[in-house]
């Protein structure tokens, strides 16, 4: 099974039926799989904080949500994570492409990469880092953990995990 198919099958197995996405090159394949899935309502967002609002509504409507975005979005969404997702205690798995790590061709991406883990730690967001392909085996447990504790949870997926671009 391809890593993209494995990710989507874990989402579906955990009853995640509402996924919002803001694209990244590294995430193109998984977004395509989500769009093709009959079991997931895929709603592209124009900005990640908007996407988190959609996810909050879906959760209160009885659907399990998830967001797929780039790590630059951590800078965009801090206020939403704190005053909506965390304040109202809502679960939100965040599958994040971790740009700016080894193999990154765009220097500017490194500028946000160096802040990514520090910001997530400052926000007390449980954070997992997928570096090798087999790390994806933990996704199912991470999703269960997210809906057990009702918190936003970050899954950082770097270029090595995606085998480059």
């Amino acid at each position: 099974m391809s890593v993209n198919k494995k990710i989507v099958s874990d989402l579906v197995a955990n009853q995640i039926g509402f996924v919002t996405t803001v694209p990244c090159k590294q995430l193109a394949g998984v977004i395509e799989e989500i769009d093709a899935s009959d079991e997931i309502y895929h709603i592209p967002a124009n900005k990640e904080d908007e996407g988190m609002g959609l996810c909050a509504g879906a959760f209160m409507g009885g659907k399990r949500p998830a967001i797929i975005m780039q790590n630059t979005a951590i800078g965009v969404t801090i206020n939403t994570l704190v005053t909506l997702t965390q304040f109202y205690r809502m679960p939100l798995p965040m599958l994040i492409s971790y740009r700016g790590e080894l193999g990154e061709p765009v220097a500017c991406q490194v500028e946000m990469a160096v802040h990514t883990k520090a910001l997530l730690a400052q926000l007390n967001i449980p954070t997992y880092h997928f570096h090798r392909e087999e790390d994806v085996e933990e996704l199912d447990a991470i999703l269960k953990h997210t809906f057990m504790c009702n918190k936003p949870v970050a899954i950082l997926t770097d270029a090595a995990f995606w085998k480059g671009y």
Partner: peptide, 11 residues
């Protein structure tokens, strides 16, 4: 508006 739309789409 985003929270309301997500809610409307889900129930």
């Amino acid at each position: 508006s985003s929270i309301g739309l997500g809610l409307a789409l889900s129930q």
